[in-house]
């Protein structure tokens, strides 16, 4: 029972991480397409300035919770996906420093270096997180000892890459909508011109991915085999995913940017949970033999730890959500070009 609760929390934490960091990774990737002038760059940076750092902590927490609740899964996942995780790590390190240092080093050469770090450091994690999760959905080559028998290139299989492309597309649209919410002037105009194209691309990719998932993974089996238990996810989650996708378009068409952004958030959460719920009770299915899979039963912490950590999570996660929501609300006014041009620090 506790294991199942932690499974849900585990999925939710990753979903929240993708939903929040998704828009700033998207903005970083959009940078070269939407920002030509220094002012435009500053507007885009300012639009994610107060948030990206707090968003990234959800990744730390998702990782930390994997470690605490399912230590064996954490051990297998992080050592197995070594090279991919190292790439994500270096990308996030360079990106974080670049966002901070470009503000404080006004020499054009330095700015160029940091700008490249921001773009690469945003695109690469978006892509690789998608690749990693798609691989988890289809199963990774784990042997009887839980040792990963693949490498970075075996992760870059067609379905894995498809997952990467899906994540990039979701984050681009999510970031674009955030710019429509949080900016004024030329950046907003360009974002408005781009948003429908991004939506169309995402719709095609998302539908393609759902179909590919039928052939490449066993996610649907879970839904089909347990009709009673999965009546909720089979109706709700596809409904949320498809419904959210449609709502993004509807709201964007009307220029209701906040609503469109929330719909896009629901889409990201829905896609993540669709995949995660299909895994249950596996955390890391083995593609070599289902018996070698990491499940919530063979990789969980002791009952005592799960209980204590549940208390911690149920106390502090709502607190975190409350103050982060306060911060989002506090800085909700769109960034003006004049405001972006003055040094914030």
């Amino acid at each position: 029972m506790l294991e199942s609760i932690w499974f849900i929390l585990w999925g939710v934490l990753w979903a929240v991480y993708f939903m929040l960091d998704g828009f700033d990774l998207g903005i970083g990737t959009l940078m070269p397409f939407l920002a030509k002038t220094e002012t435009e760059k500053r507007v885009m940076h300012r639009a994610m300035g107060p948030y990206w750092d707090g968003n990234e902590v959800w990744l730390i927490t998702a990782g930390g919770v994997t470690f605490a609740a399912f230590p064996t899964t954490y051990a297998v996942m992080f050592s197995g996906l070594y090279s991919a995780l190292m790439l994500i790590l270096f990308a996030l390190i360079l990106r974080g420093v670049a966002i901070d240092f470009r503000e404080k080093m006004d020499h054009p050469t330095w700015r160029k270096v940091w700008d490249i770090c921001v773009v690469v450091g945003s695109f690469l994690p978006a892509l690789l997180l998608g690749v990693a999760f798609a691989n988890i959905f289809e199963g990774i080559p784990l042997d009887a000892e839980g040792i990963f028998q693949g490498n970075l290139f075996s992760l870059l299989n067609p379905y894995g890459l498809f997952g990467g492309v899906l994540f990039v597309a979701m984050f681009l649209l999510h970031g674009c909508l955030w710019l429509l919410v949080k900016t004024e002037g030329s950046v907003k105009e360009k974002a408005a011109a781009l948003v429908n194209k991004l939506w169309l691309a995402l719709a095609v990719i998302a539908v393609g991915f759902l179909i590919a998932t039928w052939y490449a993974t066993r996610l649907y089996d879970n839904y089909i085999q347990n009709p009673l238990m999965y009546v909720v996810p089979i109706i709700l989650i596809p409904l949320i995913v498809v419904g959210a996708l449609v709502m993004v378009r509807v709201y964007a068409g009307k220029g209701h940017w906040w609503s469109a952004w929330f719909a896009s958030s629901a889409l990201i959460v829905g896609v993540t949970l669709f995949g995660v719920a299909g895994l249950y009770p596996n955390l890391l299915p083995s593609s070599l033999n289902p018996a070698f899979s990491m499940t919530i039963y063979n990789s969980a912490s002791s009952q005592l730890t799960l209980k204590i950590m549940l208390g911690v999570a149920l106390t502090f996660v709502p607190v975190v959500i409350a103050y982060q929501a306060w911060v989002y609300n506090f800085f909700k006014d769109p960034v003006t070009e004049a405001e972006a041009e003055e040094a914030y620090y």
Binding site: V57, T61, V65, F67, A68, P71, M309, F316
Partner: peptide, 11 residues
């Protein structure tokens, strides 16, 4: 050990 790190992150 994992629990302590997770607590650090969330608290």
């Amino acid at each position: 050990f994992g629990s302590l790190l997770a607590i650090e992150a969330s608290v």
